[in-house]
Each structure stands twice: as C-alpha cells, then as structure tokens.
Amino acid sequence: MSYDAAFERLPINACFDLKGTESALVEWIGAEVLPDFPAEANCCRKADGVSLEHVGPRHWLLQADIDREDDLNGALRPHEAPAEVSIVRISDTMTTFRITGTDAAHVLAIGCPLDLHEAAFPEDAVSFTEFFGQTALARHCVGGFDVSVEQSFGDMMEDYLKRALR
C-alpha cells in the first residue's frame, strides 16, 4: 500500500548531551541560557529557539539551529565543566529525518513501537525509542514527526523510508 506521507533528511542541528542534576547544570550553565527544565520524563521545553529535552534520569539534550552552535558551546563550556556534570557536543553524531503527511504516524509505526497517540505521546513529547531496529530519538514536528538516528545509519534509514513510502 502507499501512504500519504513524505520524508526529508534535515541539515544537522546544534545538539549537546547534558548529564547531571538540574541544579548542578543550572549552576554551571546559568538559568538565562536554558529553557525551563521539563520536570516530566520524555518531555521538552522550548524558549528562544532552544529546546531542552528530558530523555533519561538526569539526562537532557539541548538542541537549536546549527548557527547557534558556537554561542551555545561558549555558554556551556563543555571542556571546563565540573565533575558533577557532563556536557558533550554531539551535533554531528545524529542525522534527522522529517516524516510528514496524513499518514506520518503509520509510516513511523512500521519501524517504531512507540504509542504515538496524543494521550501517550503529546505535542511536547520526545523520547528515545527504536526505528527499524536502531536507537532513535522521536519527537513531533509540524505535520508529523522528526526521527534522529546515529549518523552512520543515515543512508540505511533513508533506504528503509524510501521502501516504506514507495
């Protein structure tokens, strides 16, 4: 069958992997740089073009457009961070596919076991899961979903998605 959906491979984002307690991270980075910390699991908060995603216990991802990377790197100072926190720039380790259209959720469901219904995966949800057997980060975008996988699986994922949509 064919789906009413399309996909595109997005340019990379600025992405930083943050580990540590909220208080330790705020103390190091400064509250003015970050959106509010999402208290709920697998949830994101956005402010000023920056998205802070709560993806695991004391584990967060900070994402923004790639042209913000240098600014954010300057504010986060990964290499000088104290022992209580870990900050790693991972922008070029992930590649993101944007899947949009009426059937976007059906296309995702081919390779992803997440319950994507609004009640289980609301607008501000973000979660690691799997996509065609690989670890993937899933979240909403306008009209569909963004799914990020490790960069080295990018071409393989593109093949899967082409097959799914043909």
């Binding site: 699991a41 695991g56 216990p57 584990h59 979660s127 690691f128 899961t129 670890t135």
Partner: peptide
C-alpha cells in the same frame, strides 16, 4: 524456575535505565 523469576532489563533503546 517454572514460575516467577526476578530478572534485570536495560532500557537500552530508551532512557538507559
């Protein structure tokens, strides 16, 4: 056992818990 067993699981393709 033939019945309840206590076991460990890792949410590897998830939150890492």
């Amino acid at each position: 056992p033939f019945g309840p067993v206590q076991e460990r699981w890792w949410h590897a393709r998830g939150c890492g818990t």
